[in-house]
Simulated scan of single mutants.
Amino acid sequence: MTNPFIRNHPYLVELQNHVQQLLDELAEDDIGAGFQAAAYWHGELVLNAFSGSADSAGRRPVDSDTLFVAQSCSKGIVSTAIHILVQQGKLDYDERISHYWPEFGANGKDKITLRQVLTHTAGVPVMPAYSDMRLIADWRAMVGEMEKLEPIWEPGSKSGYHGLTFGWILGETASRADGRTFAQIVHDEIGKPLGIEKDLILGASSEAECRIAEISGEAVPIASMPDDMLFKRVLPPALVPVANPEWNSPWFHAAAVPAVNVIATAKAVACMYASLIGHGVDGGRRLLEPACVAEATSPHFEGIDEVALAPIKLGLGYSLSQEGDPMGGSPMAFGYAGLGGMIGYADPSNSLAVAVLCNRMKVGRGERSPDRLVSDLIREKLSAAES
């Protein structure tokens, strides 16, 4: 039921107007950049703003139906699908991956558990040196590549960003346990129950293609890193957006590369997170029971990431908020950020779910990062509305 207090509150009208102005300013400063921002508060949509261009030439305006390649925000969606299967009894966090997928156990991986993959502690973050965009778009080929991997540290002993391998390992494990393709699981267990199946997609159809925003911007400076740097082996230059026009190809959008190429609107991502914290949207059911959310979002690793060489705090497949991040350091907030200043997250302590998506990849935005700016405005206006 719509809450008239929320719908008509002047501070929430201000929120929509101020975020819209912010996105307009960001778009004016960077021709070809497009943005969407959405937020649910107590299950009500209190923000749905968009601005800029869905193509690099600035000719196709972004609207509320524009789809964005979610980059690593995809990992939060992948993790949600895994938690749903755990809740259904099809997966177990402490079961070995090789129990569901025997071939994965080769080369010292037989004891790696689902929990270790979700916490990036499995020790298998490195991509094959010969990886290219066509290879990663081939699900069966990448399943074979995951089977060949060898741990580069003792599984469970440390955490390091499994930037791409995360998606295929979890996706194929889910498929083996469930019988459906992972793309179908995302559709059936997340998209359809929430009524967002056309707005949150793994493996985009030809009908969706015309809605997808083109990626453009600055090349991520991975190519200049030393060849022996672990980050470069985890995210090889041949696979990074902007330098690779294949990211804008229909065949890549149609592929399932779960860790990075969920196609979505900001409203759909925020809707998914709202459903995880007991604020199902428009009568939609809650995707996860409170006990499952509590397990998935409790701290499972806190320390230095071996790949990114930065402090991290992780739940099961979700990043947990730390002071100074776009989630505002809220003690219960969880989600996942993506390249370019994107994020999707839930903040249960404030009954809030937020998503910010964009198509312009820029390095070093810092305080001008869209996810940070939008989140700061949301917190300011909601604090005022509650006072």
Rank of each mutant, 00 (worst) to 15 (best):
D376P: 00
E150I: 01
E28K: 13
L149I: 02
Y130E: 13
A243R: 09
L170W: 03
E214G: 02
G366R: 00
E386T: 15
Y11P: 02
W153F: 05
V293P: 00
M229I: 10
L276P: 14
L314N: 08
G364H: 14
K109G: 07
I84L: 05
D347Y: 00
R368P: 00
E103L: 07
E209L: 05
V374M: 13
R379C: 07
A106R: 13
S216V: 02
L114H: 07
D305H: 12
N17I: 11
R140I: 13
A213N: 06
P155V: 02
I312W: 02
L377I: 12
L47R: 12
I152Y: 10
T2C: 10
S175W: 12
A219R: 13
I312H: 03
G303L: 04
P241F: 07
L12A: 08
G144L: 14
G203S: 05
T66S: 13
M146S: 04
Y345G: 08
D94N: 14
G76D: 12
Y161L: 09
A81Q: 08
T165F: 05
S321R: 01
H187Y: 03
L239D: 12
R368K: 04
M342H: 01
Q36T: 13
K362H: 14
V307K: 11
Q36F: 06
E95R: 11
A310T: 15
I222K: 05
P128N: 08
L15R: 04
P250C: 06
I77V: 15
D55M: 01
I201D: 06
V69R: 01
Y130H: 10
A106L: 05
A337V: 10
A385P: 07
D178W: 09
V126C: 00
Q116L: 03
L230R: 15
V281E: 00
V143L: 14
E302A: 04
H99Y: 10
H253W: 15
G203P: 02
A310P: 11
A39I: 02
V262I: 13
E386Y: 11
Q322W: 10
G344S: 04
A27M: 09
L149G: 06
L352Q: 12
V78Y: 09
I190M: 03
M327E: 07
A270Y: 00
S298A: 09
L135G: 05
W41S: 02
G324C: 15
D188C: 00
S51D: 11
G167D: 12
D138M: 05
P128K: 06
D92S: 05
G324D: 14
E380N: 05
A137G: 09
K313M: 01
D94H: 11
V307Q: 11
N107C: 01
S206G: 12
G156S: 05
A49M: 11
C271K: 11
I6A: 07
A37W: 00
